[in-house]
């Protein structure tokens, strides 16, 4: 009896709670038809996400539906979509929490559409690449993989940029950005927040190099501080804040009011780490290690 009651109240019940209409954007560059919306009836169980709903459609109703996903747990940032008029991750959006009988699923705005719900993110990643989003060091030996040793960074120094390191590059911030909507060349909140993230990292020495790339009309100066990017970020990152801090970083440096940050020194000794008893050896590497980056 107790088991039965537990089963009834379990969140993992398989009972269909309601039926929802999925109104899905369909477009294929090959069939010559204009983009259209197509309706599918999806039985919803407790705990189902919009991504689960799309899986249901693909597996049972229409195998031609294209969408992008990977980890199903809001880590990889692949399944960004425009769900009921907001950019969201499909894997993180519970259908029942939308409290709607019709769920409209479209590809992310501000991107070209490759097919159905798949946006073309190549421009987005190109903008990211353009701000040199990696640690730049002056010492030649530190550019070799593996570097000679660890860089020493205090927890306080880490705290200055940590939240921006949680960015999964899902592209939702650019989909929500009103400036990107009209200005396609604007670098956008993700790339700019990442520029701030690396500029603020004490292990990095690339501020001067990034400065040249950021002091362009399509740089942080175009940001109106609407804050939509922060509103839609599924990881709780505040890219709008990052862009404002980046403006301050550049301006105060230019005015001579801000000194370059302290550079994290290289650890002189290798940290001693001993394997705990009972922990097996790691399996051999499956990818050949390159000598240089």
């Amino acid at each position: 009896m107790a088991d039965q009651k537990e089963q009834e109240t379990s969140v993992f019940t398989e009972e269909v709670i309601k039926e929802v209409i999925f109104r899905v954007h369909r477009f294929s560059p090959d069939d010559g038809k204009p983009p259209r919306m197509q309706d599918y009836k999806v039985p919803v169980k407790r705990g189902m996400t919009v991504l689960d709903g799309l899986h249901y459609i693909r597996d049972n109703l229409d195998s031609t539906l294209s969408y992008r996903f990977s980890c199903r747990m809001a880590i990889c940032g692949s399944c960004g979509m425009f769900i009921n008029n907001l950019p969201r991750l499909a894997c993180k959006t519970q259908i029942l929490e939308l409290e709607a009988d019709t769920i409209e699923v479209k590809p992310l705005p501000n991107y070209e559409v490759i097919k159905d719900l798949v946006p073309d993110l190549s421009d987005f990643f190109e903008k990211h690449r353009s701000v040199m989003p990696y640690l730049i060091r002056e010492e030649e030996e530190e550019k070799i993989d593996p570097p000679t040793n660890e860089f020493l960074q205090t927890p306080d120094e880490l705290e200055r940029f940590l939240q921006f390191a949680y960015c999964t590059k899902c592209g939702l911030c650019l989909a929500g950005c009103p400036t990107v909507a009209t200005d396609k060349v604007f670098l956008g909140p993700m790339a700019l927040a990442q520029a701030f993230r690396y500029n603020s990292d004490t292990r990095d020495q690339g501020f001067e190099k990034r400065l040249e790339l950021l002091c362009v009309p399509e740089g942080p100066w175009r940001c109106h501080f609407a804050g939509s990017c922060s509103e839609v970020c599924p990881k709780g990152v505040d890219p709008a804040l990052g862009v404002q801090l980046l403006k301050g970083q550049i301006v105060f440096t230019k005015l001579g009011l801000k000194k370059p940050h302290k550079i994290a020194p290289l650890a002189t000794e290798k940290p001693e780490a001993k394997r705990r008893p009972g922990i097996p050896e790691a399996p051999p590497r499956t990818v050949k290690k390159s000598e240089k980056l």
Partner: peptide, 9 residues
């Protein structure tokens, strides 16, 4: 480098 100056003004 002109953009930051314009923005400061």
């Amino acid at each position: 480098m002109r953009e930051p100056t314009l923005w400061i003004f």
